[in-house]
């Protein structure tokens, strides 16, 4: 993914770690970063290397990361890695799991 807007269902991977994500929702966001480098399509070439210092807190499998408000974005980690997810410099926190008492 080099340009255009992120869409729900888009799958991306980190260039500098094992992280893979799928976009759950995105509103007016062009690009995601992981470990300080832009994320790329699953089949795209990767620069390699390792996450930048400070952007190496890692991603957890099965967790959602994102932010609300303008430029709302939410992704699901489908493969864990060493990098930190961000939109530019804006680090995406884990979206607090709000597990309900099992109601089904």
């Amino acid at each position: 993914m080099t340009d255009g807007t992120l869409r729900t269902g888009t799958r991306l991977r980190s260039q500098v770690c094992d992280t893979e994500i799928i976009v759950v929702r995105a509103e007016g966001v062009d690009r995601l970063h992981c470990g300080g480098r832009p994320m790329v399509a699953l089949d795209a070439d990767r620069a390699g290397g390792s996450p930048e210092s400070g952007l190496d807190t890692g991603t957890q499998l099965g967790k959602r990361y994102g932010r609300t408000g303008d430029g709302r974005v939410e992704v699901l980690v489908t493969r864990a890695g060493a990098g930190t997810l961000s939109v530019g410099d804006d680090v995406l926190p884990v979206l607090a799991a709000k597990p309900l008492p099992s109601s089904d």
Binding site: T8, G9, I22, V24, L61, G62, L76, T78, R79
Partner: peptide, 14 residues
């Protein structure tokens, strides 16, 4: 998002 992706992810997790 789809149920297929969620099952794939759950199968990776547990």
């Amino acid at each position: 998002m789809t149920l297929a992706v969620l099952l794939d992810t759950a199968a990776d997790l547990v």
